[in-house]
Amino acid sequence: MPTANAALVDRENLRAGVDAALARHVAGLRETCRAISPDAAPLADAVESMLAGGKRLRAAFCYWSWRAHGGTPGDGREQAVLRAGAALELFQAAALFHDDVMDDSSTRRGRPTAHRVFADDHRAGVRRGEPRRFGDGAAILLGDLALVASDDEMTRALADLPAPVAHIAHAVFADMRTEVTVGQYLDLVAQTMPWGDPQEDERRARDVVRAKSARYSVEHPIVLGAALAGADEAAVAGCRAVGLPLGEAFQLRDDLLGVLGDPSTTGKPTGDDLREGKRTVLVARALARATAAGDAGAVDVLTSGVGDPHLDAAGVATLTELLVRTGAVAEVEQLIDELCTEAFAQIEARDWPEPARSALVDLAHAAVQRAA
């Protein structure tokens, strides 16, 4: 999130409240691990490290949507909303632990990923067994711990709310978790498919964008905030109309940063998405343009290079140049603009009061106009 918009997360006790809830969770986990065995202490350290680096973007969308639908700072529901924000952050941590294992990512937010850290510790300790399998297993368990914690935090958030409000909010949270899991599977499936029909390639890529990232990054947090405020069905539908196109634009920006971003800012090596074989809209558009132009050489370079784990810096540079030269980068930028236009038109159509309206507009800009 751009520095100029970081204040949106700091206002009205938002960051402090969410971080306090997360700190309570880490302290409780540390005590539990210590009581079970000293050998379990690294689990709490790894969860704390993952939670420390988040932008709190999802929590901010949830909070300011709550404010937009009648929530008042300091009222009886504020703590519930802040705890719901913490639950969103814990769920994101769970998804990142698991995602890094499935993608075999080496860094996250500029730090070694958990499975790499645990594998290195295994290797340094001259232990028995395969270090990589140990690291992967530990990271999967870390994701499970964060997932359990997110459920616990949401349960506590909803405990004292009116039953109808709690029921709707819990349903939103449950749908989000299911969709992300299904989206993660669709991502795995897409990476196993041979390149073929450009329209089908893009359809798969858009399905992954919506299920795995768009809804859980923006749409569901905005809907959850409205639900916690007791918003009616029409208001919730309006949140979905804002959140889905904005969430898609958010993920498309992420895809561009994965190829063109500065590693010192993104915290990930340039080209990781290409080595991992991510079937993004960006790559699908490049293949479609190269195919339409009859450029068999470009098609061959793209289909053989994307997904090559041994791709070196020169190979990444070649693929990146093709993504630009085919016009795919420009087309994805245009698609981001179109999705943002749709999302901002939907915000304009809502009767959200200030300061929530301006906060959500600024958050929307921060989500898509970012360098990390």
Rank of each mutant, 00 (worst) to 15 (best):
L257P: 15
A211Y: 00
G110T: 13
G307Q: 13
G315A: 06
A139K: 04
W195P: 07
P42T: 10
A87C: 00
E338V: 09
T303L: 08
A149Y: 13
A119M: 04
D362P: 00
I222E: 03
A166C: 11
V117W: 01
Q369K: 05
R210Q: 03
D272V: 13
F61H: 12
G183M: 13
L145Y: 05
A330V: 08
V223E: 12
G297C: 04
L287H: 09
F91R: 06
G294E: 12
R111I: 00
R24I: 08
D144R: 02
L246A: 08
A138T: 10
L246R: 10
V81T: 11
A44D: 06
G17E: 07
A169S: 15
S106E: 00
E153K: 02
E338Q: 15
A52D: 13
A317L: 02
A314P: 00
R11M: 01
A139R: 02
A159E: 15
A190E: 07
P42K: 01
G261N: 13
I140F: 14
N13W: 08
R15Y: 07
R77S: 05
T107A: 10
A138C: 06
S304T: 14
H69Y: 12
G238W: 13
A146C: 15
Y185G: 05
L96S: 03
V209R: 04
L51W: 07
G225M: 02
A20G: 07
L141R: 00
A292W: 08
A60S: 14
E179N: 14
P269Q: 15
N5G: 09
M176P: 01
R56V: 04
F118K: 09
R56A: 08
S304V: 04
T326D: 07
V332P: 09
T192W: 00
F344M: 08
V301L: 15
A226G: 15
R116K: 13
M50T: 08
P309G: 06
V236F: 13
A298N: 01
L287M: 11
R83W: 06
E331N: 01
T107D: 07
G135S: 07
T280S: 15
P245S: 14
E89G: 07
G247F: 10
A16Q: 12
W64H: 14
L158P: 15
D337S: 15
G135W: 09
A313G: 01
Q79K: 09
D100Q: 00
A139V: 04
R108G: 06
N13A: 15
D273P: 09
V209C: 03
A163P: 08
W352M: 14
A41G: 06
T280K: 12
F118V: 01
P221L: 05
A235Y: 01
V259S: 13
S150E: 02
H310M: 10
G137Y: 09
G307D: 10
A138S: 05
M193N: 03
E89Y: 11
D207Q: 08
Q334V: 02
V368W: 09
S37I: 07
H25L: 09
P353I: 02
L287R: 15
L244T: 13
A95R: 02
V332D: 14
A60Y: 01
A174N: 02
G129N: 10
E89F: 12
A298G: 03
D175F: 11
